[in-house]
Design a protein around this nucleic acid. Sequence first.
DNA 1: CGGGCGCGATGACATCTGTCATGGGTTTCT
DNA 2: AGAAACCCATGACAGATGTCATCGCGCCCG
Lengths: 201, 201
Amino acid sequence: MIRILLADDEHLIRGAMAALLSLEDDLEVVAQAATGAEALATARVVRPDVAVIDLQMPDLDGVSVAQALASDLPTCSTMIVTSHGRPGHLKRALAAGVRGFLPKTVSSDVLATVVRTVHNGGRYVDPALAAEAISAGDSPLTPREADVLELALEGAPIDEIARRASLSPGTVRNYLSSAVGKTGASNRHEAARLARARGWI
Amino acid sequence: MIRILLADDEHLIRGAMAALLSLEDDLEVVAQAATGAEALATARVVRPDVAVIDLQMPDLDGVSVAQALASDLPTCSTMIVTSHGRPGHLKRALAAGVRGFLPKTVSSDVLATVVRTVHNGGRYVDPALAAEAISAGDSPLTPREADVLELALEGAPIDEIARRASLSPGTVRNYLSSAVGKTGASNRHEAARLARARGWI
DNA sequence: CGGGCGCGATGACATCTGTCATGGGTTTCT
DNA sequence: AGAAACCCATGACAGATGTCATCGCGCCCG
C-alpha cells in the first residue's frame, strides 16, 4: 500500500483527488494539507511514501515544499501537479528533486500510474510540458538581471526598484536595458511579462 | 434526480468533481466537457438541469457560456466555479444570469448543496467573494479608458496601443493618464495591473 | 598571467511617458 | 436650453526611461 500526502489549497480539488486516488486498491491518502507549511508539518509526522503537491499555494511554493521534503524525508518521493505549467517551474522543480511533474489536465489513471512510478524510484514529466521547457531554452539572464526584472513585474517605477534592490537607479536601468535586449521586448514591463512566461523569473 | 453538466478543462479536476457529485443520491453527472464550445454543444443535446462551469477555459469564457446557456436553455441553471475569484468576474457572471458562484476552495458538500439550491431557483454566491466584490466597488473607469488600459496590459508602447485602438497617441496618453489617476498607480503598467486585480478590466 | 564575465556605478543623450490646458463634437439628464 | 459626462484630438513641458560609452572591482578559467 502506497501512503500518500495530498497538498492543494483548493478543498474541492483536493477532496476530489483524494476520492479518485482512494479508488485504487494499492493507494491510500493518509494526509491532506491546504498550505505549504501545513504540508511540511504533516509530512514530518505521517511520513508518507509519496507527496502530491500543488505548485501554487497561499504561503509556500510547491517547489520550496519539495526542496524541504527532499532533505527532511529522503524516503518520500515528491510529485507536483499544477494548473499553469510554466517551463521555468519545471526546471526549478526538477532541481529541487521532484520526481513527477504533471498538469492538472491529465486523467486520473495517469495520476495513479505516475504515483506508482515515482514510488518505484522512477521519474515522470508530462511530455507536453517537457517539450515546452526544452523549446523555451535556458535563461540568458544573469542572476542579477533576473532579480531586477522580477521587481519590475508589478510595474513599479525605477526608483522604487532601485531602493528595493539596494542599487543605484542607473544600475537598475542598465540591467533592465540588457534584459529588454535579451527578451526582445520594447520596454521593461513587456520584458518582465515575457521572462515570466518563459519561466526565466 | 438532478441532471448535471460539468465543464472544466482540467481532466483531473473534472473527473474528480464528477466522482464527488455522483456520490450524492439525488445528483447525476450526465455530461462532461473540456472547452466552452463543447459545453455549449453538449448542453443543447442533453439539456441538463444544472450546468457547473469553470470560469477559465481554453476557448470560451465561462461567463460567455453562461450567457449563451441562459438564452438557449432557460430551464437550465448555471453555476460557476473558479480558482481565481476576481470581483469583476462575479459581477459579469451575475449579469449573465449565473445562479451560483463558487471558488474551488469550497468543500464538496457545499458544492452539492449549492447545486440543489440553484436547481430550486435559489442563488448562492460565496460570502468571501461577495465581500470582496462589494469592497472593490464599481469601476470608476469610462468604457474607453477600460479598453485602452486593457491594451496596455501586455506592456505595449503607447504607439502600438494607439494603433490597436485606432486612436491618436495623444488621446491614448490622456486616457491612460486619467486611468492612472483613478487607480492611484504611478504609471500605466501598474494601473493596468491594479485594474485587473480589482476586476475593472 | 591575461581575458572574459558578471557586478555596480556614472554621465550624456534621445526618446517615451505622464500631466495639464484647451477645444470641439456627441449624448444624456434635468 | 443648459449642464454634465464622455469621446477624440492637439500642443507644450517636465520628468522618467532606454541606450550607449566608460570606468573600477572581483572572480574564474585557460
